[in-house]
C-alpha cells in the first residue's frame, strides 16, 4: 500500500508557514500512527518547511508511505547550501537578522531533522537542495 502527496511552499511565505506540516500531522493522525512517532515526523517536516520558506527560492514537501517506510522529501529550487557540513552544525545559521527576530533561523533546522529521523540524506547544488528523511513505521 502506497500513499503519496505533495505541497508547494513559497519563498518568504511566513503567513502560511507551518501549514504543510499541520497537513502532514493531520494525515498521519488519520492513519492512526503512534502520537510520539508522529511528533518526530512533524517536527522534521516543520524544520524542512521553514528551511524552504527562509533559505530557498521555493519548493515542495513530499510525503510517501511505501511499505512500512515513511519518506519525507524536501525539494527546493536553489540556491543550494554552500557548506553542508557547516549547515549540519548545531547553531550555525546563515539566516538574516530579520528572520532571527521572527524567532527562526536558530541554526537547528538540519540538526533537528537528522536527530528526529531514522535516515537522513542531503544533496545540494546551486540548482537546489534535496533532503530525504525516512522512518520505519513503529
Amino acid at each position: 500500500m502506497n500513499i503519496d502527496f505533495e505541497i508547494n511552499i513559497y519563498h518568504e511565505d511566513y503567513h502560511n508557514a507551518g501549514s504543510a506540516s499541520s497537513e502532514i500531522k493531520k494525515y498521519l493522525t488519520q492513519l492512526g500512527l503512534n502520537p510520539k512517532f508522529i511528533r518526530k515526523i512533524v517536527i522534521s517536516s516543520y524544520e524542512a518547511e521553514m528551511n524552504i520558506v527562509i533559505h530557498s527560492l521555493g519548493g515542495k514537501l513530499k510525503l510517501d508511505i511505501i511499505g512500512n517506510h515513511i519518506i519525507l522529501t524536501s525539494i527546493d529550487k536553489g540556491p543550494g547550501i554552500r557548506d553542508i557540513k557547516m549547515a549540519l552544525t548545531e547553531g550555525f545559521s546563515t539566516a538574516s537578522k530579520k528572520v532571527r527576530e521572527m524567532g527562526f533561523g536558530a541554526g537547528m533546522g538540519l540538526p533537528n531533522m537528522k536527530k528526529n529521523s531514522d535516515k537522513f540524506e542531503i544533496k545540494s547544488s546551486p540548482k537546489g537542495t534535496i533532503v530525504r528523511l525516512s522512518w520505519v513505521i513503529e
Partner: peptide, 22 residues
C-alpha cells in the same frame, strides 16, 4: 489520548481510505 480522527483500526485499511479520499 483520544483518536477520533483515525480512518480505521488497521493501518493498511487507513491507507486505502486515505488514497480514496485524495
Amino acid at each position: 489520548a483520544l483518536s477520533p480522527y483515525k480512518l480505521s483500526e488497521n493501518i493498511n485499511q487507513s491507507i486505502v481510505k486515505m488514497n480514496q479520499i485524495n
